[in-house]
Simulated scan of single mutants.
Amino acid sequence: MSLKIRFGVGLATLVIASAAFAQTPAAKPTRIRGEIVSLTGDTLTVHRRSGDTVTIDVKSGVPVSAVKNIKLADIKPGSFVGTAATTGTDGKLTATEVLVFPEAARGTGEGHYAWDLGPNSSMTNANVDSVVEGTSGRDLKLSYKGGSNSVTVPENVPVVTFAPAARSDLISGKKVFVVASPVSGTQFVAQRVLVEKDGVVPPM
Rank of each mutant, 00 (worst) to 15 (best):
S122Y: 08
T124W: 09
V179P: 01
I75M: 02
P202I: 14
G91C: 06
S181C: 06
S130H: 07
T94Q: 08
G61P: 00
V153L: 02
S121R: 12
A19M: 09
S2G: 15
V67I: 04
P203L: 08
F21W: 14
S148T: 03
S79F: 03
V64W: 11
P202W: 09
V195L: 13
P77K: 07
R167F: 12
N125C: 06
Y144G: 06
G8Q: 14
S122L: 12
P182G: 12
V151M: 05
A114M: 10
L194A: 04
P25F: 11
K71F: 05
A166N: 11
D116A: 03
G51F: 07
I5V: 07
S143G: 05
G8P: 00
G118Q: 06
N69H: 13
A26S: 08
G51E: 08
W115T: 02
L11D: 04
K145Y: 04
D169V: 10
V200I: 14
G34K: 10
V153Q: 05
I16F: 01
F7M: 08
N120F: 09
K141H: 09
D42S: 15
A12Y: 03
M1L: 01
I36L: 07
L3W: 02
A12R: 01
V153N: 00
I75P: 05
A73H: 07
T94V: 14
E103T: 15
V81K: 04
D198H: 15
E155A: 15
T89Q: 14
L14C: 02
S136Y: 08
S148Y: 00
Y144E: 12
P203K: 05
I70M: 03
D74T: 04
E35P: 00
V98Y: 04
L99W: 03
V183F: 06
D116F: 09
P164F: 02
S79M: 03
S65C: 10
S172R: 13
T30L: 12
S79A: 11
A66Q: 00
V64C: 01
T40E: 13
P154L: 03
G137L: 06
V81N: 00
K59W: 11
V128K: 13
V132P: 03
I70Q: 12
S18D: 11
F80D: 00
